[in-house]
């Protein structure tokens, strides 16, 4: 019966997008069945091109679903999210290794 304990999430960002979605649902932004329907549709679309392995590709479909959902509802418009993503990327490239990376939110 001894077996290595698998981590719940293979990547920190998998955990982060999972928690974001659960939190938004718990705070009443959407119901879980409503989420599952959208997510299932994204998985089905992505699965047409190739078999998804349930790892990174699963959470990429998850991320795309939440991005689209939040853009549609106006909670996170796509242009704003893209701009913030670019600022995070620039911040990583400008921050010396080992120091905390942050962007200015005023």
């Amino acid at each position: 019966m001894s077996r290595p304990k698998e981590p719940a999430f293979a990547e920190p960002w998998h955990a982060q997008i999972f928690a974001l979605t659960v939190h938004l649902s718990e705070s009443g932004r959407f119901t879980w069945p409503g989420w599952a329907e959208r997510f299932g549709a994204t998985l089905a679309r992505h699965g047409l091109a190739r078999d998804l392995d349930g790892g990174d590709d699963y959470f990429i479909a998850w991320l795309e679903t939440l991005e689209t959902f939040m853009a549609e509802t106006g909670a996170a418009p796509a242009p704003e999210t893209a701009e913030v993503r670019a600022r995070w990327e620039a911040a990583y490239l400008a921050t010396p290794h080992g120091q905390p990376v942050h962007i200015d939110e005023t």
Binding site: W13, I60, M70, V84, R85
Partner: peptide, 11 residues
């Protein structure tokens, strides 16, 4: 994807 998650969270 990790950067996109960070951006979504920030917004």
């Amino acid at each position: 994807p990790a950067l996109r998650v960070k951006a979504l969270e920030t917004v």
